[in-house]
């Protein structure tokens, strides 16, 4: 396929409690091999997926939070967080992890691809995506 599509993975669930967040990550990791333009959107309880300092040690659950920090190496170029969802949960951008990104060919670097966006921007970003995977 020569055409590159804009993929958005829409994450709406808390990281634990259901398997949606983890199995969504698995799609992102596998999908990296297909070289599409990939963004992730975190909304509703999905914003908890990026909160710093998650500790699962007493719950017998694998802590997959470190995986989010590596997404820049898996072809993810943008990670958006819905501002209204953050605010409704008493969170701010300071509570979120940072994810670095680097283009190996052009050596272009971005320190942090996690970006908080307002509702109008969320709508715009979804509208301009070719594919929205909803989890």
């Amino acid at each position: 396929m020569s055409d590159i599509k804009k993929f958005m993975y829409l994450n709406r669930r808390a990281p634990y409690g259901t398997i949606y967040a983890w199995e969504s990550l698995e799609v992102v990791l596998i999908g990296a091999a297909f070289d599409q333009e990939v963004s992730l959107m975190f909304a509703d309880d999905g914003v908890y997926q990026l909160v710093k300092g998650c500790d699962t040690s007493e719950s017998d659950m694998k802590n997959f939070m470190p995986t989010y920090r590596t997404l820049g190496d898996y072809g993810v170029r943008y990670m958006y967080v819905d501002q209204a969802s953050l605010e409704a949960r008493g969170l701010t951008a300071d509570d979120l992890i940072e994810v670095a990104w680097e283009d190996w060919e052009t050596e272009e670097e971005v320190d942090n691809i996690v970006e908080v966006v307002d509702s109008a921007k969320v709508t715009e970003l979804m509208a301009e995506s070719d594919v929205v995977f909803s989890f």
């Binding site: 698995e26 999908g31 297909f34 594919v131 909803s134």
Partner: peptide, 20 residues
């Protein structure tokens, strides 16, 4: 089969419709 089948379908189809 693998998740690649989902990605491939998303690339090659005009629309991917998700039910959940």
């Amino acid at each position: 089969s693998g998740l690649g089948q989902l990605i491939e379908a998303a690339i090659q189809s005009d629309r991917l419709v998700v039910f959940g």
